[in-house]
Amino acid sequence: MTPMIDIRDLSVVFGRGPKPVPAVDGVTLALAPGEVVALLGESGSGKSVTLRSLLRLHPASARVGGTIRVDGTDVMALSPRALADFRGRTVSMIFQEPRLALDPVYTIGDQIAEAVRRHRGGTRAQARARALDLFDRVRIPSAKRRLDNYPHEMSGGMLQRAMIAMALSCDPKVLLADEPTTALDATVQIQILLLVRELQREYGLSVIFVTHDIGVAAEVADRVAVMYAGRIVEEGAIADVIRSPQHPYARGLLDARVELAGGRDRLITIPGAPPDLADLPPGCSFAPRCARVSGECRTTVPPLAAPLGRGQVACFHPG
C-alpha cells in the first residue's frame, strides 16, 4: 500500500551565519492511511518542526531539505497558491494553545465558516450550517449559541473542540496535532484525546500526534517515533516501545515518568541536559548523557536499524 505520508531525509536548518541551528536532521517517516503515529520527545527535539514541515509553516529564512509526499503530492514543489489550497484541505492542523491559535476579534463560527468557504465555496449560510454540524460532531453543547462566541468567552477545552471542528471542516486526509492537550486540565485532556481518537477512526484520518508525554502517546497512537536532538532514535509499535525500549534515551523517558515514582522517595531523571543544537557532538547526540557509551558512539552517528526484526533503533548498544 502506498503511504499517505512519506517523509524522506527531512532536514530543517534555522538561521544563517556562523552558527546555523539544525533543528531536524535526516528524519524519515511513513504513515499508512488511517494510521496514528506519535512523535515523542522533549522541547527542542525537533518534533514540532518536523510536523510544521508538512504544511511548510516555517519562516522564509529556514532551509528545508529532503522530500515530503502527502497522498502523492510533492509538498516541497507546491506553488504558493497550490500550497494554500493544500493547507486545511488535504492536511490540517490543531495547535497547542487554542486560545492563541484563534483570532480574538472574530467569532468561532466565522472562523470555521471562512475556512469552509475558502476550500468548498458556497454561501455564508451554507458555511454556517456546516460549522453548526461540526460543532455537534465534536460535541460542543448548545452549539448554535456557541458559534457566535468569541474565543475569550469559551473555556480551553471547548476551544480545542472548536479547533478540531475547524481542522475537520474541509474533510482532510491528514490531521497534524501539535501537543493539543498540553495546555489543558488533566480531566479535559483525556476527553480531547478520546475525541481525536474517535474522529480519527470515523474519518479514517492519518494523524501525526506530537507530544512529550508517553502516556498520551500510548492513549492515541499505533506507532511511536522517539526524537532526540533533531533525529529519530527509536521507532516502533507503541506496545513494543513501551514494553521493551531499545534506545537508552527511550528507556530513560519511560523510567522518568512521575506515575512510577509512587513508592520511591526520588524521581528518576536522565542525567545531563539536551545538547545545544548549534553545537552537536560528531557522533551520537545522546552519547554525553549515555551510560552505555563507547568510543564508537563519540565518532559515528548510529544509523537506524532493526536488530530485533521489528521497529527501528539508532544505537550501537541497543537493548
Binding site: 509553516l57 494554500a84 493547507r87 486545511g88 492542523m93 471562512e114 475556512a115 475558502r118 474541509c170
Partner: peptide, 9 residues
C-alpha cells in the same frame, strides 16, 4: 500562522 495552516490566502 494558524490562518495560514488552514489555507487562507
Amino acid at each position: 500562522s494558524a490562518l495560514g495552516a488552514k489555507g487562507m490566502l
